[in-house]
């Protein structure tokens, strides 16, 4: 099984008529994703390579029964696009766009939580989600992911997500679902959300988690793993050799409270029983050992 999406997931592309949207929407469709509609307020009735364009998400949902959307709208329009999708009843929103202001992210994260608790947001500034062989929403190159299982991947970094998929594929290890949660200040879906879903998924037997310096999301994930995960986890944290960060005012330093360095994150993860690699290749090797021992 996969988490969040599968071969039956019908996806709308907000921004399908743009250059990025049409390129990746096309690649996703060619991969086998059910790309059922695009939206553009002024281009309703047209199509992009046979995919019909509707004026709004609500109209697209009504016509196609889509439950997911992928946002390729430029940063100033992302807040509007996310809220439009949630109001139209979309259950899973993937926002690829980078450069969204942090205050917008904080706003729509809390708005969804309060008013649309059944809507999951992934991103913004993320590569998307791929369940190899079933569904690919976003910008991940499909050919680097091996279908099957038993590994689930969750990553905070775009290109390191691909690196992780690639490391496993070279070792002939399949992936149930790979989720790129993005590295922005307020990600819609967290490490813990994904770990929880992988723990509940019977086909996922082990999880690879890719983090990076800054914030405390990895430390929180380590806490969760320690107390709630029965499945083995391997990890890599980017920024191991980065010199100590400069402070951004006192308030920021207090919020992070000494957390945020790669060393602190790795220690927290190791303490939770996670196998931590020094680089992506080593994390892949550790996962291969885990898989061999399953």
């Amino acid at each position: 099984m996969s988490i969040f999406v599968d071969e039956n997931t019908k996806v709308i592309y907000q921004g399908l008529t743009g250059s990025q949207g049409s390129y990746y929407g096309g690649l996703n469709k060619a991969y086998g994703t059910q790309v059922v509609a695009g939206t553009h307020p002024k281009k309703a009735g047209t199509d992009v390579d046979g995919v019909p364009i509707y004026a709004s998400v609500a109209e697209a949902v009504e016509a196609t029964g889509a439950t997911a959307t992928c946002i390729f709208i430029p940063a100033p329009g992302v807040q509007g696009a996310v809220l439009e999708a949630a109001e139209a009843g979309i259950e899973f929103i993937v926002a690829i766009t980078e450069g969204v202001p942090a205050h917008d992210e904080a706003y729509f994260f809390n708005k969804l939580k309060t008013d649309f608790p059944n809507t999951r947001l992934l991103g913004p500034n993320c590569p998307g989600i791929i369940s190899p062989g079933k569904c690919n929403i976003g910008i991940t190159a499909g050919h680097i992911a091996q279908a099957g299982g038993p590994v689930g991947i969750v990553s905070r970094s775009g290109t390191l997500t691909y690196q992780a998929l690639y490391e496993l594929k070279q070792k002939d290890i399949g992936v149930t679902t790979c989720v790129g949660i993005g590295g922005d200040p307020v990600p819609g879906t967290s490490f813990i959300d994904c770990l929880e879903a992988f723990e509940a998924d019977p086909e996922t037997k082990a999880v690879m988690m890719i983090g990076e310096i800054g914030g405390s999301a990895e430390e929180e994930a380590a806490e969760f793993i320690k107390h709630h995960m029965t499945k083995p986890v391997s990890s890599y944290i980017a920024g191991v050799t980065a010199p100590p960060g400069k402070k951004m005012g006192h308030a920021g330093a207090i919020v992070s409270g000494g957390k945020g360095t790669a060393a602190a994150k790795m220690e927290a993860l190791e303490d939770a029983g996670v196998k931590v690699g020094q680089n992506p290749t080593e994390a892949g090797e550790l996962m291969a050992e885990i898989v061999a021992g399953l």
């Binding site: 990553s155 905070r156 970094s157 775009g158 290109t159 390191l160 690196q163 590295g183 890719i210 990076e212 310096i213 890599y236 980017a238 920024g239 191991v240 050799t241 980065a242 020094q278 680089n279 992506p280």
Partner: peptide, 11 residues
């Protein structure tokens, strides 16, 4: 390309 990969490259 990508902050994570760039950091990882430095590592």
């Amino acid at each position: 390309n990508g902050a994570g990969l760039a950091m990882s490259t430095v590592d």
